[in-house]
C-alpha cells in the first residue's frame, strides 16, 4: 500500500490518496490511479513503481512539462522518491510515502505551564498601563482630570489590540495558528523597551548633560520597531528568516535615513534643534557642576561654529 499526498504551497497536505497497487500512474485524465487537477500536468504524467533494488521510483511518461524534484530546476526522466522530498509536476507538489515511512515522535502536550505566558502578558500589560499613568501624572501640572489618564490608556489598549490582531490574523493565515499570546508579549516588550529608552535618554540629557541621547532617540525607536516587526514575522512563519531579516533591516535603514534627512533639512530651514532642553528634579543630577569659568570657555567655543557657518552660508543680500 502506498500513500500519495498532494501538497499545498505551504507544504500542508491538500489531498491524500491511498493506492493499493504496487505500480500506478499520476495524471489529469480519469484513467490514472491518482488524478491531479492541474492544467500544467499531462493526461498521463508519471508512472510510479518499485525498481529492481526495491526502491520506489517515479518516471516521466513523456509529458511536455517534465518531472522535477521539489524546487530543483533540472528535468529528470526518472527519480527515486524517499518520502521526504516531494516531486514536482506542472505546478503541483506530490509526496509519495510507503506505509513503512517513519513518522516523527509524538510531541508532548504542554499542559502544566500554559498559564506562564498568560501571566507574563497580563503583568507586562498592567506594568505598561501603570507607567503610562505615571507619565501622565508627572506631566500633569495643571488641574488634574481623570480623563487625562483614561484617554491615553484607552488609546494604548485600542492601538495594541489592532496591532496584535493584525499580526495574529497573519499568523493564522500563513502558519495556521494565531500565536496571539506571543504577539501580545512581543508588542508589550517593544513598547516597554521604547519607553525605558525614552526615559533613560531624558535622564542622560539632564543628569549627565549628554543631549545626544535625546537627539538620537528616534533611531532607538525605529530600531525597536524593526526588532518588533521581525519577531512578529518570525511568529507568522519560521521559513525564510534570513530574507525577512534583510527586508526588515532594509526598511529600518530607509526609515532612519529618511528621518535623519528630514531632521537635517528641518534644521537647515529653521536653524533650531527639535529636541527640548529637559529639566528634571535637582536630585537626579549625576555629575558635579562645572566651574563658571569652564562653562563660559565651552560657550566660547560655539563662536567658531557660528562664524564658520556664517562664512559658508550663502549671503542673503546681493552683493553690489
Amino acid at each position: 500500500m502506498i500513500w500519495v499526498e498532494v501538497l499545498s504551497r505551504h507544504r500542508d497536505v491538500a489531498a491524500r490518496f491511498r493506492v493499493d497497487a504496487s505500480e500506478f500512474s499520476i495524471g489529469r485524465s480519469y484513467d490514472n490511479d491518482v488524478i491531479v487537477d492541474d492544467p500544467h500536468v499531462a493526461a498521463r504524467h508519471v508512472r510510479v513503481f518499485h525498481d529492481e533494488a526495491g526502491q520506489l521510483v517515479a518516471e516521466d511518461l513523456g509529458s511536455a512539462n517534465g518531472l522535477y524534484l521539489d524546487r530543483d530546476r533540472s528535468r529528470l526522466a526518472r527519480v527515486t522518491v524517499d518520502g521526504n522530498v516531494p516531486i514536482r509536476i506542472g505546478h503541483t507538489l506530490i509526496r509519495i510515502r510507503e506505509t513503512s515511512h517513519a513518522v516523527e515522535h509524538e510531541r508532548l502536550v504542554k499542559s502544566g505551564r500554559r498559564f506562564v505566558p498568560v501571566v507574563a502578558a497580563l503583568v507586562l500589560g498592567v506594568l505598561l498601563l501603570g507607567i503610562d499613568a505615571i507619565k501622565t501624572w508627572f506631566a500633569q501640572t495643571g488641574e488634574p482630570h481623570l480623563s487625562n489618564y483614561m484617554l491615553p490608556a484607552l488609546v494604548l489598549i485600542g492601538g495594541a489590540l489592532i496591532w496584535i490582531g493584525v499580526w495574529s490574523l497573519l499568523s493564522r493565515l500563513f502558519s495556521g495558528q494565531s500565536h496571539f499570546l506571543r504577539h501580545v508579549l512581543i508588542a508589550e516588550t517593544a513598547v516597554l523597551a521604547i519607553w525605558i529608552y525614552g526615559e533613560l535618554a531624558e535622564i542622560a540629557a539632564f543628569s549627565l548633560t549628554w543631549p545626544v541621547a535625546l537627539n538620537s532617540v528616534y533611531i532607538a525607536y525605529w530600531l525597536a520597531l524593526a526588532v518588533m516587526c521581525f519577531l512578529h514575522l518570525r511568529e507568522v512563519g519560521r521559513a525564510h528568516l534570513l530574507a525577512k531579516g534583510i527586508v526588515v533591516a532594509l526598511l529600518l535603514v530607509t526609515a532612519v535615513t529618511v528621518q535623519a534627512l528630514q531632521r537635517s533639512e528641518a534644521f537647515a530651514n529653521s536653524g533650531r534643534q527639535v529636541a527640548a532642553h529637559v529639566l528634571l528634579p535637582p536630585a537626579m543630577r549625576l555629575r558635579p557642576p562645572q566651574d563658571e569659568t569652564a562653562f563660559f570657555a565651552d560657550v566660547g567655543k560655539l563662536r567658531a561654529k557660528l562664524d564658520a557657518e556664517r562664512m559658508q552660508g550663502k549671503p542673503g543680500l546681493t552683493q553690489p
Binding site: G271, R272, H277, R285, P289, D291, D298, V299, E309
Partner: peptide, 30 residues
C-alpha cells in the same frame, strides 16, 4: 541668521555658600 547652537551644563559659581548650583543653557545665533 546662521543656525543656532546651544550649550548647557550644571554650573557652580564660587563661593558655593552664597551661590546656588545652576543649570545653565546658552544658545547663540550669528
Amino acid at each position: 541668521y546662521t543656525p543656532q547652537h546651544c550649550h548647557e551644563n550644571f554650573v557652580s559659581v564660587a563661593p558655593a555658600s552664597s551661590h546656588p548650583p545652576l543649570r545653565a543653557m546658552w544658545c547663540a545665533q550669528g
